[in-house]
């Protein structure tokens, strides 16, 4: 197992795509220290920015991991980008594009992450025990290649446009979500245990969004379909209702499913007369 500790407080963005189990596995400490990493516009070596140690630990949080990072790396971008195997555990905050286009393996963060975590991911798991920024699992601006698979679990809150352009996979948010959750999603599941800001599911064509808390308003391009007692989130996980089921977004001729928890949203009861 490789343990990385930031050698200093970073001032400039670090492009850390080499912090990836596929790259580091099988290398000795000396080899890892010589790997190239960009700090701002200057090429550096990992050894100059991080203290690299090889150690075994009995700490259950990081026991299985191939790489652990101890400390604040909120300036480091693209950690675990393109990774296929192995596990990264980060004890601290982490920067943008965590696990971008990830194809397998697992990333666990005991801290907050910045925007575009799990952007365009294909498979694997990202577990975030703090909050996540904007564009969780979403592609870059203009791109329509959203999440193609895998799982993202956030125990805190997330920013805007979580799961935009999602095509497959699941995002579970145990806090609340910002505006435009599931924007233009085509398939897959997004579960929000707490509240969501408005415009949930805008332009969605298929897929499932489940909101377990308060939602100020449903977009006018959604129509009410029925009231459901419970919703399946994934294997062995069911959200207990009752839920209003809305279909949309009709603007895009979509029939995505938007479930909104009935008990916490009495202001939506006027939809019931259309049932």
């Amino acid at each position: 197992m490789i343990k990385l500790t930031p050698a200093k407080e970073f001032q400039f963005p670090i492009n850390a795509e080499c912090i990836n189990p596929d790259v580091l596995s099988g290398k000795t400490r000396e080899e890892i220290e010589k790997l190239k990493i960009w700090e701002g516009n200057k090429p550096k070596k990992i050894g100059e920015l991080f203290k690299v140690e090889e150690n075994r630990t009995e700490n259950p949080l990081e026991k299985e991991a191939a790489i652990t990072i101890h400390g604040n790396v909120s300036k480091a971008r693209r950690i675990g980008a393109d990774m296929k195997n192995g596990e990264i555990v980060i004890l601290g905050d982490v920067g943008m594009h965590l696990g971008e286009e990830m194809k397998g393996g697992k990333i666990t963060v005991h801290g907050n992450v910045d925007s575009w975590a799990g952007s365009m991911m294909k498979n694997g798991t990202i577990e975030i025990h703090g909050n996540a920024g904007n564009y969780l699992g979403a592609p870059y601006r203009g791109c329509s290649e959203g999440m193609h698979g895998g799982k993202i679990i956030v125990n805190g809150n997330v920013g805007t446009e979580a799961g935009a352009h999602m095509k497959k996979g699941i995002i579970k948010i145990y806090g609340s979500a910002g505006q435009f959750v599931g924007f233009r999603m085509c398939d897959g599941t997004i579960y929000i245990q707490k509240d969501a800001e408005p415009r949930a599911g805008a332009c969605m064509t298929s897929g499932k969004i489940v909101i377990g808390g308060f939602l100020e308003s449903v977009l006018p391009s959604f129509t009410i379909d029925s009231i459901k007692g419970k919703v399946k989130i994934e294997e062995n996980e069911v959200a207990e209702g009752p839920f209003y089921l809305f279909l949309g977004d009709r603007v895009e001729h979509g029939d995505g499913k938007l479930y909104v928890f009935k008990t916490k949203n009495p202001h939506l009861s006027h939809y019931e007369k259309y049932l």
Binding site: Y140, G142, C143
Partner: peptide, 8 residues
């Protein structure tokens, strides 16, 4: 302008 995704 329409296609930032063509560039990155």
């Amino acid at each position: 302008l329409l296609r930032p995704e063509d560039h990155f």
